[in-house]
Amino acid sequence: MKSPTYFRSAFAGMLALCGIAQAEPLKIAYSDWPGWIAWEIGVQKGWFKEAGVDVEFQWFDYVPSMDAYVSGKVDAVCMTNGDALVTGATGKPSVGILINDYSNGNDMVVAAPGISSMKDLKGKKVGLEEGFVSHLLFLTALEKSGMKADDVTVVNTPTNETPQVLASKAVSAISAWQPNSGQALKALPGSKPVFTSADAPGIIYDLLYVSAESLEKNKEDWAKVVKVWYKIADYVRDEENLDDALKILSARVKISPEEYEPFFKGTYILTLDEALKRWEKGEGLASVYGSTKSVNAFNLKFKVYEKSQDPEKYLDPSLTKALKK
């Protein structure tokens, strides 16, 4: 008996012979972050099919997801606003068409036992990955605590190694995002967060970024994707759906709903009305434009890239604004 794949391939071949092009699905790379795993809800509930859009979500670790986008293997990728600037400056530009969320506690500065505040870190070593959002978070924490960058010694550490480095006591604190920050808390009993992204809401926005080519070619389909997202956002923000949402999200990363709940609550998923406010142009972190401008300054200062990036070229609120009632 021939496989289903055989028949699909044969059917596609017949269409090609007849001169009928078979539309490719929109390919989206996503990774382990609550605001991105939430796409699973739309997939499992069939909401994309209901909306009449063919979407293929491909699961990656975070950095490989960006590599897949830059190499053209996918049409879109879920990234932070800062990392979108990096991929654009050094590889392939993209356009953010919707804001999934902002980090609301999942990104943390985790300190060893005996350290109760950022000021206690003066003169001590801190492990973090230079040039990434955890570095930006840490510098923001220093600034808000009245400290300077040279008040501490930064030990450049891959983010996924920060839990082990903190547990080894080679450093007095680390800066990382979930699940690494949570793993660090477990790895060293008595450790605790002394600053989190909840102390600077909007410092890290998480968006869906699409290639300019795909956006131009498939704008109506991307509009449907955006519309489905806000159906997902309304679903997860309804407390009555919490158990179901946690079941779906936690299954994607193979942990229990109870274990996953703190990660979910450390992510502020935006409703349509809340997202529209964040799309308003402004200088502060309450605006995705202001936040992206701040990250651009950080990237230039630390030579992540050499040429300044224009936030407006990376952001397109039109598909979100089209949903405004």
Rank of each mutant, 00 (worst) to 15 (best):
T80I: 08
T271A: 08
N299F: 14
S291R: 03
T271H: 07
M108A: 04
K324M: 07
V171S: 00
E240N: 14
A322F: 06
I37E: 01
K281W: 06
S291N: 05
E161P: 03
K92T: 10
V210M: 04
I115Y: 04
L142N: 07
S145A: 15
K119Q: 15
K313S: 14
T271C: 11
E129I: 08
E239S: 14
S71I: 11
I28R: 05
A112T: 00
L142Q: 08
K307W: 07
V171L: 01
A111W: 00
V77Q: 04
D61F: 10
G105L: 06
A297S: 11
L15N: 10
D54M: 06
P317L: 11
P34N: 03
M1T: 14
W177C: 09
G131R: 11
V43R: 05
F7D: 07
D244S: 05
L139E: 15
T196L: 10
N241H: 10
A212H: 09
I115A: 00
V304I: 15
I203E: 04
L276P: 06
K219S: 11
K227W: 07
I204P: 00
V133H: 11
E24H: 08
R237S: 11
Y30C: 03
A212L: 05
A141V: 07
T267M: 12
S117M: 00
S3Y: 11
L323Q: 00
K231V: 06
W59C: 06
E283C: 08
A38M: 13
Y230G: 02
D273V: 04
S214H: 05
K303E: 13
M1W: 12
K281E: 12
P4A: 10
I37P: 04
L85A: 01
I203W: 04
F60R: 14
I248K: 00
V133I: 15
A12Y: 02
Y268T: 01
W222H: 02
T271D: 09
E280D: 03
G88Y: 09
Q22W: 04
P25C: 02
L185N: 03
F57K: 02
A275N: 03
V77D: 01
A173I: 03
K254G: 02
T196N: 01
V228E: 07
N81I: 08
V86F: 08
V55C: 03
K119G: 10
E259V: 15
F302L: 14
K169N: 06
P193L: 09
I174Q: 00
Y268Q: 05
C78A: 13
K293D: 11
Q58H: 12
N218Y: 02
L139K: 15
A167F: 02
V55M: 03
K2W: 15
N180T: 08
P34H: 05
W33Y: 15
A251N: 05
P189D: 05
S256N: 11
K92F: 04
V53H: 09
N156D: 15
D75Y: 12
G88F: 06
